[in-house]
């Protein structure tokens, strides 16, 4: 049971979170202008590294905020979590 540092609520058990996959995959500015190839890359292609991985998590059972962290996929050690706390307007 990993201990995941929610930037708002502090460290909590993994089961309180929802995994959001690779971080930094931005929704294209104008999807209609994107080639089929690039659109498919956006939809379906993700990295799956052995080692350091920047990924997204949602504190689903807590404050319902999405945040990013970097995790070592070999040891499950959390390297750091996002300083930029996401706040809706």
């Amino acid at each position: 049971m990993m201990l995941i540092p929610c930037p708002w609520c502090g460290p909590r058990d993994e089961i309180e979170f929802h995994y959001g996959g690779q971080a930094g995959v931005a929704y294209p500015q104008d999807p209609q202008a994107v080639s089929d190839q690039d659109w498919a890359e956006f939809l379906f292609f993700r990295d799956n590294p052995r080692g350091e991985f920047a990924e997204r998590w949602l504190h689903a059972a807590g404050c319902r905020r999405w945040f990013g962290l970097r995790r070592d996929t070999v040891t499950n050690r959390v390297l750091d979590s996002d300083d930029t706390r996401t706040v809706t307007q």
């Binding site: 959001g20 931005a26 929704y27 319902r64 999405w66 996401t86 706040v87 809706t88």
Partner: peptide
């Protein structure tokens, strides 16, 4: 919905 609202 929160995902899109908060992150995109």
């Amino acid at each position: 919905l929160e995902d899109w609202l908060q992150t995109e």
